[in-house]
C-alpha cells in the first residue's frame, strides 16, 4: 500500500489509511448488495419496483433505514444476559472485518499478506458462530435459542465442505497465500493453453459449486436460512434485537456475503486480475479493487438469485446435504485434484 503513493507514510497514517480502507471494503459492497440485489432485483423478480422515494430510484433507502435504526430504542429483554446480549452483534461483525484482512485487492494493495491467508480466513470465519450462539443464548427467548442452536449446527456442518472445497485450489496453486493464489491463476496454464491464465473455476468447477453452496449456508441465506426462518422462528437468534444492534446483524449478514464472495472470487475467478493483462503492472493497484468488485457482484448475484427462488431446507435435510453429499463430493474432488496434480 505504501508503494501505491510512493511516499513514506508514518505509522499512524498507515493505520488510519487501513482502518478507513477496511471500513470501505466491508461496507461499500454490503451497501451495494443490499440496494442492488435485496431491494431492487428482488422487487423486479416480484413485479414491483422496490424503494423509490429515498433518493433517485430509492438509492438512499439504506441510509434511511440506518437513520431509522439509530432512532429506535435499544431494547434488552428483562431476563437477558445483558453483557453477552450487547456484545453478540459486535462479535459477528468482527469476524467479517477479520476476514477482509487477507483479501488482496491488487499486486500491492492488501491489508496483511499472510502466508497462511486462506487458512486464517477460514479460521476467523467461524468466530461468527460464537457471536450467533451468544445472541441466541443471551436473548432469553426460546425462538432465539432454537435459532442460535440451529445456526451453530449448520455453520459447523458447512465449515467442513467449505474447507475441503478450498483444498482443491490450495493443491493446485501450491500455496495458502491468497496473493499467490491470484498469481498462480494469472500465470498458470490449462493443459498447455496459457492465453487466459488458469482461473481455477475451470479446473475446480466442483470445488466452486461446493464452495458456493457451503457459502450460502454459512451466510444463512435461503435455502439455508433455517436459523432465522422467519415463518417459524420469527427471526431466529435476532428475534429480540432492535435498533442499532439489529442493524449490526443485518449489515453483518450482507457484509459477510460480500467478503465471502471476495474470497470466492480470489480463489476461483482470479481475484483482482483480468485475463490478458500483466499481473505485475501497477495499473492493477487502481483497477484491482474495481475488478474484484465486479467479480463479487457476479458471485453474489448467484447467491441472491437462489435466495429469491428457493424454499428453505429443513434442519435434517440440511445436515444430510452437508454430510452425505457435499463432504464426500469434495473429498473426491481433492483426490482427483491430487492425482491430476501429480500426473501433469
Amino acid at each position: 500500500m505504501i508503494s501505491i503513493l510512493s511516499v513514506e507514510i508514518p505509522y499512524w497514517g498507515q493505520t488510519t489509511f487501513r482502518v478507513l480502507g477496511g471500513l470501505a471494503a466491508v461496507l461499500l459492497p454490503a451497501g451495494a448488495l443490499v440496494y442492488i440485489y435485496l431491494f431492487k432485483l428482488m422487487s423486479f423478480v416480484q413485479s414491483r419496483l422496490g424503494p423509490m422515494e429515498a433518493g433517485p430510484a430509492g438509492s438512499l433507502q439504506l441510509l434511511a433505514e440506518v437513520g431509522k435504526a439509530f432512532q429506535k430504542e435499544d431494547i434488552f429483554p428483562r431476563k437477558a444476559d445483558k453483557l453477552v446480549f450487547a456484545a453478540a452483534p459486535f462479535v459477528v461483525l468482527m469476524s467479517t472485518f477479520l476476514l477482509i484482512l487477507v483479501v488482496p485487492f491488487g499486486p500491492d494493495a492488501w491489508f496483511v499478506n499472510l502466508d497462511t491467508g486462506i487458512f486464517f480466513a477460514l479460521a476467523v470465519s467461524s468466530v461468527s458462530v460464537i457471536g450467533i450462539l451468544m445472541a441466541g443464548w443471551a436473548s432469553a427467548s426460546k425462538y432465539s435459542l432454537l435459532g442460535g442452536l440451529r445456526a451453530a449446527g449448520q455453520l459447523i456442518a458447512y465449515e467442513l465442505p467449505l474447507v475441503l472445497a478450498v483444498m482443491g485450489v490450495v493443491i493446485q496453486a501450491g500455496t495458502l497465500n491468497m496473493q499467490e493464489i491470484v498469481y498462480a491463476q494469472a500465470e498458470g496454464e490449462i493443459f498447455g493453453i496459457s492465453g487466459i491464465g488458469n482461473p481455477f473455476i475451470i479446473t475446480q468447477f466442483i470445488g466452486f459449486a461446493i464452495f458456493l453452496i457451503a457459502m450460502q449456508a454459512e451466510l444463512t441465506q435461503p435455502p439455508f436460512d433455517m436459523p432465522v426462518a422467519e415463518s417459524e422462528l420469527v427471526s431466529g437468534y435476532m428475534t429480540e434485537y432492535s435498533g442499532i444492534r439489529f442493524l449490526l446483524f443485518f449489515i453483518g449478514e450482507f457484509a459477510t456475503a460480500g467478503v465471502f464472495s471476495m474470497i470466492a472470487s480470489v480463489l476461483f475467478l482470479g481475484g483482482w486480475w483480468v485475463p490478458g493483462l500483466d499481473p505485475d503492472s501497477n495499473l492493477f493497484n487502481i483497477l484491482g479493487p474495481a475488478v474484484l468488485f465486479g467479480k463479487v457482484m457476479l458471485v453474489t448475484f448467484l447467491i441472491f438469485w437462489f435466495r429469491f427462488t428457493y424454499p428453505r431446507f429443513r434442519e435434517d435435510q440440511l445436515q444430510k446435504l452437508a454430510w452425505k453429499v457435499l463432504i464426500p463430493l469434495s473429498l473426491v474432488n481433492i483426490v482427483a485434484t491430487g492425482i491430476l496434480k501429480v500426473v501433469f
Partner: peptide, 16 residues
Amino acid sequence: MGVQVGAVTPIFFAFR
C-alpha cells in the same frame, strides 16, 4: 405456502 416453507417470491406472484 411458499412463505411458510421459506420462499418469498410465490406470495408476490399470488398477490399480483
